[in-house]
Design a protein around this nucleic acid. Structure first.
Lengths: 157, 157
DNA sequence: GTCCCGGTACTCGGATACTCACTGTCCGAGTACGTTCGG
DNA sequence: CCGAACGTACTCGGACAGTGAGTATCCGAGTACCGGGAC
């Protein structure tokens, strides 16, 4: 039960992209150097965000990645699910209906109580992440830091 | 981000043990046959529960596993953490202080906002699981099922 | 009949192979820019 | 001087290897029961 390390990379990447001026883009190589992570692998994860509709990518020298929507409309859950998949933590294989102690189907009309509680917990996790937007993260950043980020990632024209 | 399949096995195993008469035990082989899962591997996971203090194991022919505490004092979180480890989902590697865009330490006195929100979500998950005991699960079982379980797992004396 | 002893079968416990997702890397298709050549 | 065409450099995008946690398995140490034998 652990998120891939790349999850941290994309969370920081999206947060960083959100600090740029609207419409501005940064390349995977720039972001990789910004965080000192493998460029190719980061690019792979950013592609997943494009497929999920969180980012949009432009080709060519002045291409790169930028937010597909305002930062107020991008939640942490969308980012995490984009890179890690939306499959549930706990999958109920109806163990109660298998093996020596199989319970007759007519007593299994209600969903397995264990699966229900595990699903509740997972829903709590998802709701917590869905309640935080990238804009909320930006609001908590030290004053003046976005300006510095923009300067570091501005491209020589 | 997925729990091991063995998590489901131990959750059902503990729930099943809780249906037995107080003091009664069942062997790993019995439980494995009860759910049709690999006996040796299930045994390995049950050992983890013993190390975590959720179960106690007795040696010899009349040994086996039994609950270490009343079912009202065993939470789903304790079971999950016993088998899956209590390590956090998201580990903050202070990415903001690394690479080209490293932020000076004096601006990093507050914990990373991303890590904080991820930790909040994880806490919500853990609290949800910590709020459910094995006794709660038993209360939702079909009437008369514990009796059947006891009969299936009773040992020829 | 009663007690003691040995054998047996069953239990947990840890040490040992195998598989798949995560990690890391590479090269190919496509585009905007800078340069160069012609008018 | 102006315009267009070309070459170049940079971008994303998908296809290809390496590694650690999860999965599955086995065998050894220890104990309670069962039977037999001695008293």
């Amino acid at each position: 039960m652990k998120l891939p390390e790349s999850t941290e990379w994309v969370l920081h990447s999206v947060t960083t992209l959100a600090q740029l001026e609207p419409g501005a883009a940064a390349s995977a190589a720039q972001l990789a150097a910004h965080f000192d992570v493998p460029p190719a692998y980061l690019a792979k994860q950013l592609q997943a965000l494009v497929r999920a509709g969180v980012l949009v990518a432009g080709p060519g020298p002045r291409g790169g990645f930028r937010l597909a929507r305002p930062a107020t409309d991008v939640t942490l859950l969308q980012i995490v699910e984009a890179v890690d998949g939306a499959s549930p933590f706990y999958q109920c294989n109806e163990l109660r209906q298998q093996g020596r102690g199989a319970v007759p189907p007519e007593q299994c009309r209600r969903t397995c109580a264990l699966a229900a509680r595990m699903a509740d917990a997972e829903a709590a996790w998802r709701e917590s992440l869905a309640g935080v937007t990238v804009a909320d993260i930006l609001a908590g950043l030290p004053r003046g830091l976005p300006r510095r980020t923009r300067a570091l990632l501005s491209r020589a024209r």
